[in-house]
């Protein structure tokens, strides 16, 4: 009885009973996430890289297409603001790396957004309706799965020509399949959980069941998958650009820069080193965040 006077706890339960459940749940997850040093460090790193990609090209003394005859293929030096050196055309590598970051990161985010929207809608509808509709919808996904990504993109490029938006579309259109499977599986398993039945038994309305029971339990794996999908998509873009199907000059991306750097490995190794480093750091960061989120959102795995 004396414990009931514990105001802090009372306040939390009161809030929960008013229906502000998501807040306390997500806050708990946030607290767990904040304790994860690798994930938090990755967050800061990504913020720095993101901000640098946005602002450095705006204020740097060199533009991405400014070629300088005096500095062709110079190694990194503090002289004349070529901190990362220059490429074979005398263009400043630093501004190109950050500009490439803009392109790579936005492709990563946008394609993931496309995959997320299609995948979650498709998967939850299939899982929720179930039965034969589910069967048809998921067989379609299976068919799409069997189509190799590269093959699919080459067809798209040859039919519609090279276009950066086509790359968005192609990656998004392929990557939603896994998302749809994840969401469907989750919806199916949660729909049949006894706790959903217990919610029915106390007479809970369907929207309430969806809000308090289904969504919070589906969202965990989805959020985790999203953070793992972003680096995957950046990587796909990089390798499409590397083989010449993605971003075109004079626009640039990390993949394209790495491709050019790989060609000059003997004479100008910095051309490979800097874009590859940024790509690798970004990959690691997203993966650490994904792992951190998984641990934070699913207390049972601890």
């Amino acid at each position: 009885m004396n414990a009931r006077s514990n105001i802090l706890r009372s306040a939390q339960i009161a809030k929960a009973a008013r229906g502000e459940v998501s807040e306390s749940l997500w806050r708990q997850a946030a607290r767990r996430f904040a304790r994860n040093k690798a994930a938090m460090f990755s967050c800061y790193t990504l913020v720095v890289i993101g901000l640098a990609s946005i602002f450095v090209p705006m204020f740097w003394p060199h533009g991405i297409e400014d070629a300088s005859w005096e500095y062709i293929g110079t190694a990194p030096s503090l002289e004349a603001w070529h901190w990362f050196g220059t490429d074979a055309n005398g263009r400043d590598l630093l501004v190109r790396v950050f500009y490439g970051g803009r392109v790579s990161l936005s492709i990563g985010l946008l394609t993931t957004l496309v995959a997320l929207c299609i995948g979650v809608t498709y998967g939850s509808v299939a899982g929720f309706i179930g039965g034969r509709t589910d069967g048809f919808m998921m067989r379609f996904v299976d068919v799409m799965y069997s189509l190799p990504l590269l093959f699919f993109i080459i067809i798209l490029v040859t039919v519609f020509g090279r276009n950066i938006f086509l790359v968005f579309l192609a990656i998004g259109a392929v990557e939603w399949l896994t998302m749809a499977r994840i969401v469907r599986g989750q919806t199916l398993s949660i729909k049949n959980q006894e706790y959903v039945e217990s919610a029915e038994a106390i007479g809970m309305t369907r929207p309430m069941i969806l809000r308090r029971y289904i969504v919070p339990n589906v969202l965990g794996p989805v959020v985790v998958y999203v953070t793992l999908l972003i680096p995957t998509n950046i990587l796909i873009e990089s390798y499409l650009s590397f083989i010449g199907l993605g971003v075109q000059e004079p626009l640039t991306s990390w993949g394209l820069l790495i491709s050019q750097g790989a060609g000059q490995l003997d004479s100008a190794p910095w051309m490979l080193f800097f874009p590859a480093t940024f790509l690798a750091i970004t990959m690691f960061s997203f993966n650490f965040i994904g792992d951190g989120l998984r641990d934070a959102l699913d207390p049972r795995q601890r």
């Binding site: 339960i13 929960a16 009973a17 229906g19 459940v21 306390s24 749940l25 959980q193 006894e194 706790y195 039945e197 217990s198 919610a199 106390i202 007479g203 809970m204 308090r212 029971y213 919070p216 339990n217 207390p299 049972r300």
Partner: peptide, 18 residues
């Protein structure tokens, strides 16, 4: 499995009263 893993037991028990 008959308890929602995302709610603490205080919320679970109070829920029918909602």
């Amino acid at each position: 499995s008959s308890l929602n893993p995302r709610l603490c037991v205080g919320e679970i028990v109070a829920e029918p009263l909602l």
